[in-house]
Simulated assay, not measured.
Amino acid sequence: MNATSRLHQEETQFRIILAATYPFFLVAAVAQRVLPDRSPRPAAARQGLSARRSVFGEAKAMAVSAIPFAFMG
Rank of each mutant, 00 (worst) to 15 (best):
H8S: 14
S5E: 15
F71C: 03
Y22W: 12
Y22E: 06
M62P: 00
S50W: 06
A43F: 07
A19K: 05
R52N: 03
A70H: 07
A66Y: 07
G48M: 11
T12N: 08
A29S: 00
S5G: 12
F71R: 02
P40A: 07
A19N: 10
K60I: 04
F25A: 11
A28R: 03
N2T: 14
G48F: 11
P68A: 06
A45Q: 09
P40I: 07
V34G: 00
S50M: 10
R33G: 00
P36Y: 05
A66L: 11
A59S: 00
G73C: 10
R6L: 15
V34A: 02
N2P: 12
D37P: 02
L18T: 03
L35H: 01
I17P: 02
V55A: 00
A63D: 03
N2V: 10
V64C: 11
V64P: 04
I17A: 13
S65Y: 10
A51M: 07
Q13C: 13
V34M: 01
A61R: 05
R46N: 08
R33Q: 02
S65C: 12
Q13D: 15
A43G: 05
L18D: 02
L26M: 03
Q13V: 12
E11T: 14
I67D: 00
L49N: 03
F24D: 12
A20Q: 11
L7D: 07
